[in-house]
């Protein structure tokens, strides 16, 4: 076991050295930023080598912190290079805006997500909505989304109480929880990109 671990860590460290080497010889700021993602993955590799439940529990916060740092850095890059002055509204490509394809793909994704249900299903359905909004330059109605989010929350709580007090109706509770979390994740996903200031006003 220890032997396998040592080999694994050797491979990851070599990968890390290569990534750091690339980082060191690259001079362009944006490219270095992109390479950092590569470097970050080697850290996750070291954690993953633990190969236990603990590793999974540790990767998630590690990943979150990494993503948060990258978001912060990309914001700084934007202000530094003055990119924020010309905001982009949706995918302004005429072919996409006129065609039916995005609608069909989004519908497919949403329906498939609903069938999957649960966390993954919410992710898939949310992706469909995000794609739709981006291609149509849709003006998000935040109130509607907030309402949907609230209803899903209520559903979830209801399901929770059902599990607690009426265990014999577990199937209804399960369905409620599944639908609730689908809605919740979908709404959260579709909010991606709406928090970047007042670009839509």
């Amino acid at each position: 076991m220890w032997g396998q671990y040592s080999y694994g860590i050797l491979v990851v460290l070599v990968a890390g050295v290569i990534a750091f080497f690339a980082l060191a010889i690259e001079t362009d700021d944006l490219h270095r930023f992109l390479l950092l993602d590569l470097v970050e993955i080697t850290a996750l590799g070291v954690i993953a080598l633990l190969g236990t439940d603990l590793a999974e529990a540790l990767i998630l916060p590690g990943l979150t912190v990494g993503i948060a740092e990258q978001l912060a850095l990309s914001q700084i890059y934007c202000t530094k290079e003055r990119i924020m002055q010309n905001p982009v509204k949706g995918l302004n490509i005429e072919v996409i805006a006129k065609a039916d394809a995005p609608l069909i793909i989004s519908m497919f994704l949403v329906v498939y997500g609903l069938i999957l249900s649960g966390f993954t299903g919410g992710g898939v359905a949310g992706l469909g909505l995000v794609f739709f909004f981006m291609s149509r330059g849709y003006r998000e109605d935040l109130n509607l989304l907030e309402m949907a989010s609230g209803i899903s929350w209520a559903l979830w709580i209801f399901a929770f109480f059902c599990f607690m007090f009426l265990p014999q109706y577990w199937f209804i509770a399960l369905m409620c929880a599944a639908v609730g979390i689908v809605l919740k994740v979908t709404v959260k996903m579709s909010l991606v990109g709406t928090m970047w200031g007042n670009g839509n006003d």
């Binding site: 750091f20 930023f33 996750l44 070291v46 633990l50 890059y77």
Partner: peptide, 24 residues
């Protein structure tokens, strides 16, 4: 700040890596 951020982000590799080796 940007240059600092680049270094700080790459420093998370030894940081998390070190903690993982501690656990291992």
């Amino acid at each position: 700040a940007y240059q600092y951020g680049l270094v700080a982000l790459s420093a998370t590799v030894p940081l998390f890596g070190g903690a993982a080796i501690y656990a291992a």
